[in-house]
Nucleic acid binder design. Structure first.
Lengths: 342, 342
DNA sequence: TTGAAAGCGGTACCAC
DNA sequence: GTGGTACCGCTTTCAA
């Protein structure tokens, strides 16, 4: 059958020199034609000859050679976003990626697993990206930022709860989600509030700040209320166990981390004969469709990762106009969608 | 406050020449030291001087220059996977990405939005990737494959329902999902089977083959049964409307595209007084946790994208040992998880 | 043990 | 209009 076209050691990939030879012109002319250079006039016949030769050979310019010569790239480094980061985060990065590509940047995803922050920064710097969005999880240091900047990055942007000195920051303060949820529950007269803490390792990064926000919201309210952390893996059995000892916990409300955990817990509570919301109010987060399909309909904290300017344009602006003060943008908007469960 | 370190036009990024100058050695020596070259002996003092100079300047080698010289890259191009591709697909690519990085490849995600197949192939070829995984959606042509191969790609792998001539193929035959579901429903004695077709544009790519598989399963069974497509957007109102005219459709079973659509539809049916599974059986796909939390518990087609060899190692093997026959690997395993809803 | 120099592929300046 | 050529940063052979 069809053989995968082999690359015999001798036959190498076509270069502009090959095109030039075949078209009977110089490499310079090939470059002019391929780039539609307007400062030089090339006669139409030569143009055509070059184009044909290029097509014949399957010539495609070598990006590395070009950017080496140009002295800069249009590469933007983004973190590979794990599914556990949540839907809003995935949406944000999908949109960012689309936007950047639309602005003619090359998007490269770089995972930072198993690298310490400085090693990651150096690995990234090798690609000479024009901009870098660094995940908050790995603690990018001022030294790492310096390496990236010295390597030519026009914009270094951290993504996380805290800004890092010397870099722009997209602030994603998850504590606001917990705060929102708890303020809502307090306003409904609840005073003894559980906060579900997923056991899945990747989720702790979001869960901890959400809990902290919940605690702070209670403190700030001045109400005689309290918050209790409820560790819970995403499985039926542990949820049933938790529901079985629910009354001993004395809780009248629970912020369930997100809508999926809320569904898990609410089902367990209902199966254990605990009425929602009468005995215990439940609120989730992410405002998924599934919340609207539950009975009672699930209240939720709707979150959105958004900047006033589309994020891709923001990066483009920072790249074109480097050297300004580090900008801090709050990314996460949270708002309660109150339904029947709270 | 802290100023973002500017890049004054004069001060450019440090090169190996700068390191050499500072350390008082030649560029060659710098290269030897930075790459821990063992074929040449460098005295320890020089080693240290070079290392210090590099650290002082924040020198990081230039990947493009290096691969230009080397004549090859370790770049693997993967499609950016949209959230609508489904959880199994996302899991597959996350795993692939991790594995490749572990094997020291640089993973670059490339979206193909707004490009025709041949333009995309040329854009990809500019990066001189050593391997390319091309999404099935954009119809990569033999010409595109040729361009990529001629540009030095050791492995071109298509991902989709059909193999493309001249490339390796990861076959993801979604029709198997529909087939599985329908065979299950037939075995339960159902004969009039609806198949939900999402209206979301991105999902048609999965939905069409699933429907086709459902139809084929009925034909192959020889049973006196039929399949009916049910267009449905992922919203409550249209689901309620569909449920309202449900009895006029005369269906005794429905394959709901996936678990989330199944939840949407099942809730609507129940609200309309139609009993599941007595009057209508429901089965979803993806075997999400939420199916286990519904009442009745949702039957589902569990899918998994898996190769016998871990996919990253498979690509590595194809890269190291190019020129063989195109390999075809069936990626998608589907199996029914029967619960209470069918 | 270290240095000089060629060359990877493409671009752009300067001559002709 | 088109061609010659220097150069981007790095590796590697060969010579010292």
């Amino acid at each position: 059958m069809s053989q995968l076209p082999e690359q015999p050691a001798g036959i190498s990939v076509p270069t502009s020199a090959d095109v030039a030879r075949l078209a009977g012109v110089s490499r310079a002319t090939v470059s002019y034609v391929m780039n539609n250079n307007t400062t030089v006039r090339i006669t139409d016949p030569t143009r055509r000859r070059v184009r044909e030769a290029a097509a014949d050979l399957g010539y495609v310019p070598h990006a590395a050679a070009r950017s080496l010569r140009a002295g800069h790239t249009r590469t933007v480094l983004l973190p590979s976003v794990h599914a556990s980061a949540g839907l809003p985060c995935q949406r944000f990065f999908t949109g960012l990626e689309c936007g950047l590509r639309h602005l003619d940047y090359t998007v490269v995803h770089y995972g930072s697993v198993g690298l310490d922050a400085d090693a990651a920064a150096m690995a990234w710097a090798e690609l000479r990206p024009v901009a870098v969005v660094a995940p908050g999880g790995l603690g990018l240091t001022p030294y790492g930022i310096d390496v990236l900047t010295r390597s030519g990055a026009k914009a270094v942007i951290t993504l996380g709860p805290q800004p890092v000195d010397g870099a722009h920051a997209l602030l994603m303060d998850q504590s606001e989600v917990g705060g929102c949820a708890v303020r809502h529950l307090l306003s409904r007269g609840r005073r003894s509030i559980g906060v579900v803490m997923p056991r899945e390792p990747g989720l702790a990064q979001l869960a901890e700040p959400r809990l902290a926000g919940a605690v702070r919201a209670v403190e700030d309210s001045g109400a005689d209320a309290h918050v209790q952390a409820l560790p819970l893996p995403y499985e039926e059995r542990p949820a049933d166990d938790l529901a079985a000892r629910w009354r001993s916990l004395g809780l009248d409300a629970v912020f369930a981390y997100n809508d999926e955990y809320a569904m898990l817990l609410m089902r367990a509570l209902q199966d254990a004969g605990i009425d929602v919301p009468t005995e215990t109010a439940v609120i989730g987060a992410d405002d998924l469709m599934l919340g609207r399909l539950l009975r009672p309909r699930l209240s939720s904290v709707a979150t959105e990762l958004a900047t006033t300017q589309p994020p891709a344009q923001m990066i483009d602006r920072l790249v074109r106009n480097p050297g300004g003060e580090p900008e801090h943008h709050r990314l996460l908007r949270a708002a309660v969608v109150a339904r029947e469960s709270s």
